[in-house]
């Protein structure tokens, strides 16, 4: 474990917590893409499938973190699609998730480290995570604005994988550890946030709200 990965995981936890708080406190999921949250839940379940297969002795933090990610993302989907369904902006959350899931699944079968079920699920989860934020970014471009709290969520969510890139550089340099698939997907994932990062740093940090040119 290194500082980059630690702060990456903390940033990821913060993102999940910010979104949960936003929905719970405002009792509304306006401006939140339910599809992105569904895709994240699928990512966690397919990536941490080992929790369900092998007996999970909850002694180490990694297992606990995996369970937190899965339960928090499923609970977020429950809030969006059930509890606060009336506030879900389905009209603007209109990016076709199939266009992300099918290519990720196909690519996972073609490019993977080992052609076996668990490994393909893991690879699928990595590829899907890289593009899972697209429905959320698409929704913001359609509505033309993002609530400040939602911007903080996106900043934390984007920072997590950006910090993981620093972690991979660190591990390559000091442990000569390389996980090419995760690195390539992580770079793509972070690049997708660049536009948002620019808006966040030039606007939200100064207390302005993100309003895209309509």
């Amino acid at each position: 474990m290194n500082i980059f990965r630690l702060f990456g995981d903390l940033s990821h936890l913060a993102a999940i917590a910010i979104l949960l708080l936003k929905i719970w406190k405002t009792r509304s999921c306006a401006g939140v893409s339910g599809k992105t949250q569904l895709l994240f839940a699928v990512c966690f379940i397919t990536r941490y499938i080992d929790l369900f297969l092998h007996f999970v002795s909850l002694y180490n933090t990694e297992k606990v973190m995996k369970l937190i990610y899965i339960s928090a993302s499923v609970f977020t989907c429950y809030l969006i699609f059930f509890k606060f369904k009336a506030t879900y902006d389905g009209n603007h959350d209109s990016m076709r998730a199939e266009f992300l899931i099918v290519p990720a699944a196909g690519l996972a079968c073609l490019i993977n480290t080992k052609f076996d079920a668990i490994e393909i699920l893991w690879t699928f989860s990595i590829y899907l995570e890289a593009v899972a934020i697209l429905p959320q970014l698409f929704l913001i471009s359609k509505t033309g604005e993002a609530e400040t709290i939602t911007s903080h969520y996106l900043f934390a969510q984007g920072s997590y994988r950006a910090l993981y890139i620093l972690n991979w550089i660190y591990r390559y340099h000091y442990e000569s550890h390389v996980d090419t698939i995760a690195i390539v997907a992580g770079v793509v994932q972070t690049i997708l946030y660049c536009d948002f990062f620019y808006l966040y740093i030039t606007k939200v940090v100064k207390g302005q709200k993100i309003v895209l040119p309509a």
Partner: peptide
Amino acid sequence: PADEVDHDEL
């Protein structure tokens, strides 16, 4: 199982 690829990150 030993033959599984070890992904030690979340």
